[in-house]
């Protein structure tokens, strides 16, 4: 594995290895000195074209815990905002000797392009409406920790599937790992070819919830309303929002996940967001261990 561009690039063994490695590395976070020397002398660049404090900080912390040198290269205040092309930025990073580049970009496929122009490993930290593979990996890690398995697990992913990189990566990864995914959304927020994806599709959240071990709520941007994807925030929330009443109809052990940031009162009620069944903060904590595992496996060898 040289790059991590898509969750679909991972076979079952590779994905399991990442999750297992993350489990071992998680113990570092519990020690008073939270640092390993594994990536000493290696340089990791965080190349963020979109604001994402959460993901950038997670990658930064992961790299630092492995003793890598970390450079944060954000689109604001750098030559990127002066109109430098992605290729020239890539060649600059290459000249500086970056061993790994973590890229977040608003354009789908930007990490694929970058991988053509740098020798180091490229990690996709979210590209447009395409994929977010480390999010899917940390989600799978969280499910496995909470529920003890992934094989046969029934996972409902609810919300704006059409524009969601989290949904795309999760469908690919969870299917590879043996879970059953059901996508739940109004038809306007599903891709036209979704019936060809390796998952189930439903327009009815109430029908799916009692049969789900995990429900993953995705953020729905309010501006979608202005494009007539749905009539109103209120109607969306009524049909596809998760509140305490709906949660009570799920199996007792079932968990609620959210990749963040949450819009309370839209796709998730405050009551559910704050309930112990909601794993949002665990997902954040697991994100660091998981990203340590990916960096270690991509950059640690030889």
């Amino acid at each position: 594995m040289r790059h991590l561009l898509s969750a679909g690039d991972l076979d079952r063994d590779e994905a399991t290895l990442i999750l297992d490695t993350a489990g071992e590395l998680a113990q570092v976070g519990d020690r008073s000195v939270k640092k390993l020397p594994t990536l000493r002398g290696r340089t990791v660049v965080n190349l963020f074209y979109e604001d994402s404090t959460r993901t950038r900080t997670s990658f930064e912390l992961a790299a630092k815990r492995l003793s890598a040198d970390v450079i944060n290269f954000s689109a604001k205040g750098s030559s990127v905002s002066k109109g430098e092309s992605l290729k020239d930025t890539a060649l600059t990073l290459q000249a500086m000797g970056a061993d790994g580049v973590v890229i977040r970009h608003g354009a789908s496929g930007a990490p694929h392009r970058l991988a053509n122009w740098v020798d180091g490993s490229v990690l996709n930290a979210g590209d447009g409406t395409h994929e977010h593979p480390t999010q899917a990996l940390l989600d799978a890690f969280t499910m496995r920790e909470r529920l003890g398995r992934l094989e046969g697990l029934r996972v409902a992913v609810v919300g704006d599937i059409l524009h969601s990189r989290v949904a795309r990566s999760n469908v690919l990864l969870l299917t590879t790992l043996g879970a059953h995914v059901t996508l739940v959304a109004p038809p306007t927020l599903l891709p036209v070819s979704v019936h060809t994806w390796p998952c189930e599709v439903s327009y009815d959240l109430d029908e799916v919830l009692p049969e789900s071990d995990v429900v993953m709520m995705l953020r729905v941007q309010a501006e979608r309303m202005h494009d007539s994807f749905f009539p109103s925030v209120r109607e969306y929330s009524r049909n596809y929002g998760l509140d305490g009443e709906r949660l009570s109809r799920m199996p007792e052990e079932a968990i609620v996940m959210h990749p963040g940031p949450m819009v309370r009162g839209m796709e998730i009620s405050a009551e559910v967001a704050d309930s112990p069944r909601c794993t949002v903060t665990e997902q954040v904590a697991n994100g660091v261990s998981l990203r340590m595992a990916v960096l270690y496996l991509l950059l640690g060898g030889s």
């Binding site: 789908s108 496929g109 409406t129 395409h130 795309r168 891709p191 070819s193 060809t196």
Partner: peptide
């Protein structure tokens, strides 16, 4: 082109 490939690649489709 809007279809299987655009949906997978996350690129807005031209139906």
């Amino acid at each position: 082109n809007e279809g299987r490939v655009s949906d997978r690649l996350g690129l807005p489709g031209w139906p």
